[in-house]
Each structure stands twice: as structure tokens, then as C-alpha cells.
């Protein structure tokens, strides 16, 4: 992964030789927009628009035609200063897609020389789940390198009868390789809108001049934090069953001895599950256990673990 970082830095620093009249921006704007629709052949990727290095492979159907699985690819594997990645996913009426990534995402150390451009590194993901549609969004972890200046936003737009399950897992630094996260900035913003009304807003903003990373009320010096959001379509599950589900999820975490690392709470139709600890692998394993319990109830589907998660 360090080679990746180096080669990308090189491409970027070697390009702007001709930019003498315009200010050097060194920005790499990439966007990918995907649209899934229900067709007589099941849920299909019906539109792809891309600009820059983001791309997808063909949809595949490990559990039948009604749910399209897709790998989101970002060959540079990481985001440097000036980069802005925009991913838009629209799931049309009654379609179902499961999006995942084959590799970790990375926010590299930000540039310090601001004369060659802004230090900001931005990823924005907008997911719009139309009526009776289902979307599952399970990217692998995002690694934030020491000295990064990252902004990662996930905006989910649901209808009262659409369903969404999705997580984000953030690793601050690489403590196992002795690279602690001490001076970087990173903001993770998750927002959920139901019929264009903001119903959930969660911004975790780590900066060198605040104590969010260190304080016991913040991240308590842990290096991995994650949120798993699950939104059930209206009428999909009764309040009583949802209450039982929450108890069951908490029991699963007690059985896995993770009751002090994972919390489960409910905000109306939205389940908010949080992990705070030191291992992305552990977090993923716990979230998969929870997903296997939630999925049959929220999406009427058994949860067979996607192959890419085994690697």
C-alpha cells in the first residue's frame, strides 16, 4: 500500500508542468454515478456514469436475480490532498443492490505545502433509495493516515417504505505498524434524510485542537470507530418485533463478549449501532453477526456472507 501512495504522489507532482497561467490546484476530481432498476431480469445496473478512476465491475448475482451485488473499485486505493471523490448511487423502485469494496479506502497524509494546493481530501457518497427499494452499502474499512485532512460524508436519502443497511468503519492511523494518529484531521459525517427531511445527523470531527480522539466521552484513545445504520421500511417490522430484535442484537454482542465495544440504539425507524475499539477485523466480524440477524427481518432475505468478506 505504501507503493500505491508513492506512485500516486509521483503522478500528481509530475503533471502540473504546463500550468503556468492558472493557479496550481493539483486536484483529482473523480465521480461515479450508478443507477439500479428492477427489470424483468431482476435488479440491474441500468446506468453508469463515470469520470476519473472510480469504476465498477459487472453486477453479479450470488443470491438470485433480485439482488445485484457490485464491487466499487478505486484503483489508486486512496485519496490525497486536492482529491474529491463523489459516488452517487440511486436504487429505483423495488430494486435491490448490495455494494461493497474489495479493498480498504485510504486517506493519505495531507500535503503541508499549501502553495501547491489545498490540503483537503474529500469523499462524498450520496445514496438514494426510492420507494420499496433496498440498498445495502458495506465498504471495507477506511484507513486515515497520520497527518491526513480528510472529510468523508455519507448522505442517505430514503422513502418511508425503502430499506437501507450500511456501515462505515474508520481506522485512525495504523497502530499495529506503530503509526499512531496524532496530528491529523478527519471528519466523518453521516446523514439520513427521509422524504427530504433530515432525520439523523452524526458528525465525528477529530482535529489536532480538540480532544475528541483522546477524551473518554469521545473516542477514548481508540483507533477504530464505526457506525452501522439500519433503516426498516414502514410496516416491515412491528414495534414489538423491533424491540425483540434490539434485545437479540445486544445478546449477540454479549455472547461475543463485545458488549462494551458495541452499542445498539433505535431512533424511530433507524437502528444505530456503534463500535469503538482497536481492530477493523473485529468490528467487521461483529457487524457481520449483526447483519445476519437484521437482514432476514428487514429485507426478508437470508444473510449469506459475500465472498469478498472472507478474504
Amino acid at each position: 500500500m505504501t507503493t500505491n501512495a508513492v506512485s500516486k504522489e509521483l503522478t500528481i507532482t509530475s503533471t502540473p508542468t504546463t500550468q503556468t497561467t492558472t493557479p496550481l490546484k493539483n486536484a483529482w476530481l473523480a465521480s461515479l454515478s450508478l443507477e439500479f432498476s428492477l427489470t424483468p431480469n431482476g435488479s440491474q445496473l441500468t446506468r453508469t456514469k463515470r469520470n476519473g478512476p472510480l469504476s465498477v465491475q459487472k453486477a453479479f448475482y450470488p443470491e438470485g436475480r433480485d439482488c445485484a451485488h457490485i464491487y466499487l473499485l478505486h484503483p489508486p486505493a486512496g485519496i490525497v490532498s486536492g482529491d474529491e471523490l463523489h459516488i452517487d448511487i440511486q436504487v429505483n423502485e423495488q430494486a435491490h443492490c448490495l455494494v461493497t469494496t474489495p479493498g480498504a479506502n485510504r486517506f493519505y497524509r495531507a500535503r503541508e505545502d499549501l502553495t501547491i494546493g489545498d490540503s483537503k481530501q474529500v469523499q462524498h457518497c450520496g445514496i438514494s433509495v426510492k420507494q420499496a427499494a433496498k440498498c445495502e452499502n458495506f465498504p471495507l474499512e477506511t484507513i486515515v493516515y497520520e497527518g491526513a485532512d480528510g472529510f468523508n460524508t455519507v448522505d442517505v436519502y430514503v422513502d418511508s417504505d425503502s430499506s437501507y443497511l450500511g456501515w462505515d468503519i474508520t481506522c485512525l492511523g495504523l497502530p499495529s505498524s506503530g503509526q499512531l494518529f496524532k496530528h491529523g484531521s478527519y471528519t466523518q459525517l453521516n446523514r439520513v434524510y427521509c422524504e427530504d427531511r433530515l432525520i439523523y445527523h452524526d458528525r465525528i470531527s477529530i482535529k489536532p485542537d480538540n480532544q475528541i480522539h483522546q477524551h473518554i466521552a469521545g473516542l477514548n484513545n481508540h483507533s477504530v470507530f464505526a457506525t452501522f445504520m439500519a433503516y426498516a421500511a414502514k410496516g416491515q417490522i412491528t414495534d414489538a418485533d423491533n424491540k425483540m430484535l434490539i434485545e437479540q442484537l445486544r445478546d449477540c454482542m454479549i455472547a461475543a463478549d463485545a458488549q462494551h465495544k458495541v452499542s445498539v440504539s433505535q431512533i424511530r425507524q433507524l437502528l444505530i449501532i456503534r463500535y469503538l475499539g482497536d481492530s477493523a477485523e473485529e468490528c467487521k466480524a461483529l457487524f457481520i453477526i449483526l447483519w445476519q440477524t437484521i437482514r432476514p427481518l428487514y429485507l426478508n432475505k437470508a444473510a449469506n456472507v459475500p465472498r469478498v468478506w472472507h478474504t
Binding site: 445527523h201 458528525r203 470531527s205 477524551h215 473518554i216 469521545g218 473516542l219 470507530f225
Partner: peptide, 17 residues
């Protein structure tokens, strides 16, 4: 506008039980 304290949010969720 709007900032969270993750461990506090978790403490509050755990308080439910």
C-alpha cells in the same frame, strides 16, 4: 453545525439496559 461525542452516545445507548 452539529458534533457528536461517540463514546457518550454509546454510554447513553447502554444506559437503556
Amino acid at each position: 453545525v452539529g458534533t457528536s461525542l461517540p463514546h457518550l452516545a454509546m454510554a447513553s445507548a447502554w444506559h437503556e439496559t
